[in-house]
Write a protein that binds this DNA or RNA. Sequence first.
DNA 1: TTGTAGACTAGCGTCGACA
DNA 2: CTGTCGACGCTAGTCTACA
Lengths: 111, 111
Amino acid sequence: MSATESPSPSARAAAPAAVPAKTPATVPGTLSATAPGVARRLLALNLVRLRAQRGWSQEALAHESGLHRTFIAHVERQVRNASIDNVERLADALGVSVAAMFQPPPDPPAG
Amino acid sequence: MSATESPSPSARAAAPAAVPAKTPATVPGTLSATAPGVARRLLALNLVRLRAQRGWSQEALAHESGLHRTFIAHVERQVRNASIDNVERLADALGVSVAAMFQPPPDPPAG
DNA sequence: TTGTAGACTAGCGTCGACA
DNA sequence: CTGTCGACGCTAGTCTACA
């Protein structure tokens, strides 16, 4: 035990943020810092972008990643929630890191 | 849809990397760029690190992420492959971006 | 507090076929 | 080439309980 040398017996209860706010920054009218499904979208965006950048077809990517053609199509359409194990496989097939799949796309020059 | 204006009818067949190598950089004695399960490990490492950094218990993190206690424990032990939807939830609970969960941990100075 | 086991449900991921 | 439906297996994810 002694996970953290907490001065108090009930560490969690005595912790400064003992009771973490359930709705911290959910200001009415303000979107959450991280919207639900942002990962799915980022993954899809980067997936389509990287794939098109290489001139690969969904079938080719599916073949490279060892996944099925239909699955690739679903992920790109955000109708399917892939697991990290498959996301890594996709990233490996594209030659990028898993973190890159969730990296925000390079904002295009406005002018 | 003209994905790529390939001069040849069989775009894929005529594509530059028409036949992508199945084992491209698997040089004998050289480890692959991305080892299998690296995402699972990175996720677990960052998860434990960020959680301990906040002095949160698995139960607290589970409560914050809205997931179950057992699931958190399994992910940290890498015995479970989480989906991006849940990874995002974990990242949100920790106040970090999904990409941060797969970011390589700050390697400590060797000496 | 954390790890693990067992049982259960829900959804992922595959396959084949069509538009 | 890409999107989608139907069916199917497998595992992610939940819950209870014990060490």
